[in-house]
Every structure is written in structure tokens, then in C-alpha cells.
Amino acid sequence: KYLVLALYDYQEKSPREVTMKKGDILTLLNSTNKDWWKVEVNGRQGFVPAAYVKYL
């Protein structure tokens, strides 16, 4: 498993997404889509914009 760092705040806009705050450390679950990565944060799984996170 990889960890990624939230570069920006992101507010979920659909039930498939998750909210994150700048500085959050997220567990990367799937990065096959170049635009949306599946992550786990605070016990929830969902998608965030790939451009908003970077590998640690």
C-alpha cells in the first residue's frame, strides 16, 4: 500500500468521493484512473482528484 499527501482541501461532491484536508495522509487504494484516485481517509473509502494528492 502507498501513502499519499493531500496538497489541498477537497470537499466531496458525490457519495463516491471523500473529503480531505490539506496535509492529510491518505492510504492509496487504486490509481489506475489518471484523474481520480481511490483512497481511504478517516475510515472512509472514496475518490479524490489525482492532482490534489502526491506520493509520500
Rank of each mutant, 00 (worst) to 15 (best):
Y2M: 13
G23R: 02
K21L: 08
Y8S: 11
K38F: 15
D24H: 05
G43F: 05
E40M: 09
S14P: 05
N30M: 08
E40R: 07
L3P: 06
A50G: 05
R44P: 01
K34A: 13
R44G: 04
T27S: 10
K34P: 14
N30Y: 07
K54A: 15
G43W: 03
E12R: 12
K54Y: 10
D35H: 15
T27H: 12
S31L: 07
Y52F: 14
V39W: 00
Y2E: 13
L28Q: 01
K54R: 13
K21C: 10
A51K: 14
N33H: 11
A51V: 11
F47N: 04
T19A: 07
K1D: 09
S31N: 15
I25K: 05
Y10P: 02
R16D: 14
E17S: 07
W37R: 02
G43A: 05
K22H: 06
S14K: 07
Q11T: 15
V18M: 10
Y52S: 12
L29D: 01
K22W: 03
V18S: 02
W37S: 04
V48F: 01
F47I: 07
L28T: 02
P15N: 12
V48I: 10
V48A: 03
Y10N: 00
T32D: 15
Q11V: 15
V4H: 04
K22R: 12
V18Y: 03
S31D: 14
K13R: 14
T27C: 11
V4T: 04
K13H: 09
L26N: 00
E40N: 06
M20E: 00
P15A: 12
Q45H: 08
V48S: 00
E40C: 11
G23H: 05
Y2P: 14
E40L: 08
R44D: 04
P49E: 01
K22E: 09
V48Q: 00
N30Q: 11
Y8P: 01
Y52V: 07
V4A: 10
L5I: 15
Y52T: 08
V48H: 00
E12N: 08
K54H: 13
E17C: 06
D9E: 05
L28G: 01
K34F: 08
K21M: 10
A51G: 12
L28S: 02
E12D: 05
K13G: 08
P49K: 04
K13W: 04
E40W: 06
D35S: 11
E12F: 05
G23D: 08
K22N: 04
K22C: 07
G46A: 04
E17H: 06
A6M: 03
T19H: 05
N42W: 06
Q45L: 08
A50H: 04
K22Q: 10
V39A: 01
Q11D: 15
V41G: 08
Y8I: 10
L26W: 01
L26S: 02
D9F: 03
Y10H: 05
V41E: 03
M20L: 09
D9K: 02
R44V: 09
V4M: 09
G23E: 02
R44T: 08
L5E: 15
S14L: 09
P15I: 10
L29R: 04
A50W: 01
F47K: 03
R44C: 06
V39H: 00
E12K: 13
M20R: 00
L28F: 03
N30F: 06
L5M: 13
E40Q: 09
D35R: 12
N42Y: 08
D24N: 06
N42R: 11
